[in-house]
Design a protein around this nucleic acid. Structure first.
Lengths: 338, 338
DNA sequence: CTGAAAGCGCTTACAG
DNA sequence: CTGAAAGCGCTTACAG
C-alpha cells in the first residue's frame, strides 16, 4: 500500500512475458486476447499489486475523471445539501469534482467555463440557487454533458433537476386530511416565489380532491420565523376556523407554533402543523422529531443530477425530484377519524 | 471559448518562431529566457487563446491537482458544512477533490487509501465526525500531505482541525454576563461527550472570572429538543434561581424555551437563552434571528483544513478553530446593568 | 491472438 | 539565452 509502489504496466508485461500492448488489452478487457494469456496477466498484475497510473490513463484517453461544478452560491443553506449529494455520488463513481463558484456574478461565468474547459472535465454540473433565479445555459459551450441542479435554464431541452414543489404541498395536505383535519390554513413565504406557488397548488389540489376549501386565504410574507408568528396571529384574529396550518417552511412553522401556544391552543390536538425543509437535525440516538415537515430531498436531488452527468441515463428535460413527508410531534398521535 | 479550441504549446511555439522548450519555459516563468522572447511568446499565447492541457501537465509533472477526501460519514449533519467549506476552498485553489466515504467501516479505509494512491492525489483530507470518535492516522500511507478535519487521530504530530469547544462555552458565558445575568444554568447533551465537556469548561471559566458560581449543576442528557424541555422543567421544579440558560445545542435551547414560555417566563426578559450550532437558516431578506447561538464555524474549519492540505502554512499539530457568537432575540434587547 | 510503434502534450535536464 | 531530445505511462490502430 506504500506510495513507493510504482509498479508500471511495463513491469507487468515483462514479468508476464508479453508485450506492453497485450498487457494493456488483457487488463482493459478489450481486444482479442486468449483466455490463458489474459488470466495469466491478470494474475501477475494482482501479484505485483499493479495500479494503473490514473494520470497517464487520463492523458492517453483525454478523459480527466473530473466533473466541473459551476455554482452560483455554493454556501447557500439549500445549495449545500445539493452539493454534498453530488460530490458524494461522484466520489462513488470515481469522479473527482472541481468547484468554481461564480457567486452571482454573471461576468465570472465565462471564466469558470474556460477553466473547466482547460481542465478537460468529463462533464459539468451547474448548481443553481433555487427556482427563483434562472440559470444561463452553458450547454453549448461544452461537448461533454451539462446538467443543471436546483435551477432551471433559459434553454429548453437542458437537463434540469428541481424539487417537486407541488408534491410538497400535496403531501402535506394529504397527511393532514388523513388525520381528519378539515380546516387547513396556509401560511407561506414570499409572494410570487416559484416554490411557494407550487406548494400552494399542491395543497389546494389535495383539498379540492377531498371537496374542501382552504381555511381562509393564503398568507404570504417572507420566509422568517417572525412572519410565521405574525401571520398566525393574524389568522387567529381574523376569526377563521382552522385545525391545521401548512407552513411554507420550518421557520414559519416554529413561529406559528409559538403563537398558537401563547394563545392557549394545543399543538397538535387543537392545531396540527406541517412545515417544509426538514431543517431539524437528527443526532445519533435521537428518535423523536418535533416538527412534521416535508423533506425536499435536496441531497438526493444533487445525487440524481450527478448521476446524470456521470452516466446520463435519464432523458433530457426538466426532472421534478420527489420529496418526502417526515412526521413529527406537531401532527403525530392523532388517529384519523375519517 | 469553444471546446474545439485545442491550441497546443507546439502551435504557440511555431507561430512565435521558437522551440517547444523555449515556449514552455517562457510561459512557466522558470529558466532563462530573454525578456523580449518571453513577452513575445506570451503575446502569441494570448492571441491564440492558448490554454495548456491540464491532463498533459499533470502527467508530465506527476501532480494530479486533486485532493483526496476520506470521510467517515460525509452525510452527517455536521460533516456537511465542513465538507462544503473544504470543497469550496479547494476549488478556489484550482484543486479538484475526490471523495471516498468509508461510512464508519474501518475495513474500507485501506481500500480508500489505495484508490487515492492510484489517483496520485496531491494531498489527503480526512474528514472525521466530531470529537467523539478517534480517527486512525493514515499519514504514514502517503508521501503527500495528510490533514484531519473535525476529528483527532491516534498519532501525535498529525495536523488536526477541530472546533474550539471551550471557546464556545466562554463566548456564551461572557455574553450572558455582559447582559447582566448572574444566575446562569447549564443544560447540555450527552454526558462525557468531548464537545460538551469543553463547552462546560469554557462556561465555568468565564463564570469563575466573574466570581460567580453556576446556577445549579450541569444537566446532561442527550442532544434532542425533548431533553431540553425535560431538563428545563427539572430546573424549574428544583427551585433553582436562574436568569439564563446556556444550552448544549440549539435543539436543547428550543426545547427549554417552550417550557419557559409555558411556565409563564418571558424570554429573554426573565430568562435569556444561548444555544450552540447556529442551525437557524438565514434566507435572503431575513434580518431577525430568533435564537442566540454559538456558530462553531465548521465551514471555515473545513476551509482551513483544506488550505493546510493545499498550501501547508500552519505548523503541524492540533488546531482549535475559533467559533463566533450570533446574537438573536433570546438574549437581545437587554442592556448590561453591570 | 500478439507485438512494434506512434501518439497523447507537456516539462526538463542537457548541450550548444 | 535557446533548441534537440528524452521521458512521463498508458492506449490503440496497424501489421503480422
Amino acid at each position: 500500500m506504500s506510495e513507493r509502489n510504482r509498479v508500471t504496466l511495463s513491469d507487468v508485461a515483462a514479468v508476464a512475458g508479453v508485450s506492453l500492448s497485450t498487457a494493456s488489452r488483457a487488463l482493459n478487457g478489450g481486444g482479442r486476447v486468449s483466455v490463458e494469456t489474459r488470466s495469466h496477466i491478470a494474475e501477475v498484475a494482482r501479484r505485483l499489486d499493479f495500479r494503473p497510473n490514473a494520470l497517464a490513463q487520463s492523458f492517453a484517453l483525454g478523459r480527466s475523471r473530473t466533473i466541473g461544478i459551476l455554482a452560483q452560491n455554493s454556501r447557500g443553506a439549500f445549495t449545500e445539501p445539493v452539493l454534498v449529494g453530488a460530490v458524494a455520488h461522484l466520489g462513488s463513481r470515481e469522479q473527482a469534482c472541481l468547484l468554481y463558484d461564480t457567486g452571482f456574478a454573471p461576468e465570472k461565468l465565462a471564466d469558470g467555463v474556460r477553466r473547466l474547459l482547460a481542465r478537460r472535465v468529463d462533464g459539468v454540473l451547474v448548481l443553481g440557487d433555487g427556482l427563483g433565479t434562472q440559470l444561463r445555459s452553458v450547454t453549448g459551450d461544452f461537448s461533454v454533458p451539462v446538467v443543471y441542479a436546483f435551477g432551471l435554464t433559459d434553454r429548453p431541452g437542458d437537463s434540469c433537476y428541481v424539487p417537486d414543489s407541488e408534491m410538497a404541498g400535496r403531501l402535506a395536505g394529504e397527511h393532514l386530511l388523513a388525520l381528519g383535519r378539515r380546516h387547513i390554513a396556509h401560511i407561506t413565504g414570499e409572494e410570487g416565489d416559484a416554490a411557494a406557488i407550487g406548494r400552494e397548488r399542491g395543497l389546494l389540489a389535495s383539498l379540492a380532491e377531498a371537496g374542501l376549501p382552504p381555511a381562509g386565504d393564503t398568507l404570504a410574507g417572507d420566509w422568517g420565523r417572525a412572519w410565521g408568528a405574525a401571520a398566525c396571529r393574524r389568522l387567529i384574529d381574523s376569526g377563521t376556523r382552522f385545525d391545521a396550518v401548512f407552513c411554507g417552511n420550518d421557520q414559519i412553522a416554529l413561529g406559528a407554533e409559538s403563537v398558537l401556544r401563547e394563545s392557549g391552543r394545543h399543538v397538535p390536538d387543537d392545531v396540527a402543523l406541517v412545515g417544509v425543509d426538514n431543517w431539524e437535525y437528527v443526532i445519533s440516538g435521537q428518535t423523536t422529531r418535533h416538527l412534521t415537515t416535508v423533506d425536499t430531498g435536496l441531497s438526493a436531488l444533487g445525487a440524481a443530477a450527478a448521476a446524470q452527468v456521470a452516466d446520463g441515463r435519464d432523458a433530457p428535460g426538466v426532472h421534478s425530484h420527489p420529496c418526502r413527508l417526515v412526521v413529527g410531534a406537531t401532527t403525530a398521535g392523532l388517529p384519523s377519524d375519517g
